[in-house]
Write a protein that binds this DNA or RNA. Structure first.
Lengths: 184, 184
DNA sequence: AGGGAAACGGACTTCGACTTCCACTTTACA
DNA sequence: TGTAAAGTGGAAGTCGAAGTCCGTTTCCCT
């Protein structure tokens, strides 16, 4: 691959990240091209469709999420606090990136393309969840899917907060909903 | 208004209800017209834009939600159970109607148009919330917005469940997240 | 009954997005 | 340096969905 091509590919990815972060899934290709300082043709040379571009970004995002989750799961200490950390990290990222929020709460097509990363994320979360159950802090019937739902709903609330919905706070919501997983 | 016009208006509303329930916000106008057994021109005669049609349906939905909430709030008995009933009713309706789910979790334009109905819903919920606090079942710092966020997230989870997302269950999620409002 | 206004239907227009195409430019290599 | 292949830009093409228009039909009132 030619050097200028590789450079442009990076510029496109970088621009796409920014534009999708700001506008979510309905970011527009010409905007991305303009921001990258290239023509739309160049964008399409590197990513045959908009969906392919979204997928590349989604993979990137989920990789980071999974990395973060594995790092958190590897830490010593209070499982409850670590789980909360993990959930907060998800909220934080979704709040800063509407594209990610859309991907997390999004259609199954995209999620299928990042199945590997998703699996790592689930595995890390599950291990923390089990630790939490063992320590008696997490309710015994909690499942990975419960945490999944929590994360997805969190993505939605973060997105609505970004939309300017009064009184909405993803941090507040995360704290409350997460309490529902506590053993009693 | 002519009799046939009124009849057609009802047919359109009825069809729109069904199509939006099944397809959510991206239901298509020709589909609605076909289902109603009329031409698209007739649909546009009664509702100048797609948005106007959505708004009419949303108002209808929120009216029912508000009515249900007020009825629940007026009942005697355990405030906690009544609040849960109310939250479940919201989930149930969202699960049965993707249009409603989209409206609840949706853009502020639509919600602004049903401000009055939303206000009744909020008022009824608030009164139950206060009863719950007074009885010591609900955490003292809970707010109406917390319940709002819970309902919106519930709409999202119900929608994802309808999308066929494995392991997702709005009832399960409602129960868990709602527990987060319990006083400790 | 009959005339005129209201309503209807659905082909057509518009519009806004994604995507393609190709004349031109840049790079890499002999 | 010259040349062929790779890459570029952005105007034009395509496509799907919303919305319009007008000849035809239906209804209501006298």
């Amino acid at each position: 691959m030619r050097a200028d091509a590789r450079r442009n590919r990076e510029k496109v990815l970088e621009a796409a990240r920014a534009v999708f972060a700001a506008d979510g899934q309905d970011a527009q290709m010409p905007d991305i091209a303009k921001r990258a300082g290239v023509g739309v043709g160049t964008v399409y040379r590197h990513f045959p469709t908009k969906e392919a571009l979204i997928e590349a970004l989604a993979r990137d995002h989920f990789e980071r999420l999974a990395d973060g989750a594995e790092a958190t799961a590897a830490r010593e200490g209070d499982p409850w606090a670590l789980l909360l950390t993990l959930v907060h990290a998800c909220g934080e990222r979704c709040a800063n990136d509407r594209g990610l929020a859309a991907a997390v709460g999004g259609n199954r097509d995209i999620l299928a393309d990042v199945a590997a990363e998703q699996h790592r994320l689930r595995a890390a979360t599950t291990s923390l969840l089990e630790r939490g159950k063992a320590s008696g802090q997490v309710r015994a019937d909690a499942t990975m899917d419960d945490v999944s739902m929590l994360m997805c709903s969190l993505a939605k609330i973060a997105d609505m907060e970004n939309d300017g919905r009064e009184g909405f706070s993803w941090r507040r919501f995360a704290d409350i909903a997460f309490e529902g997983l506590r053993a009693r």
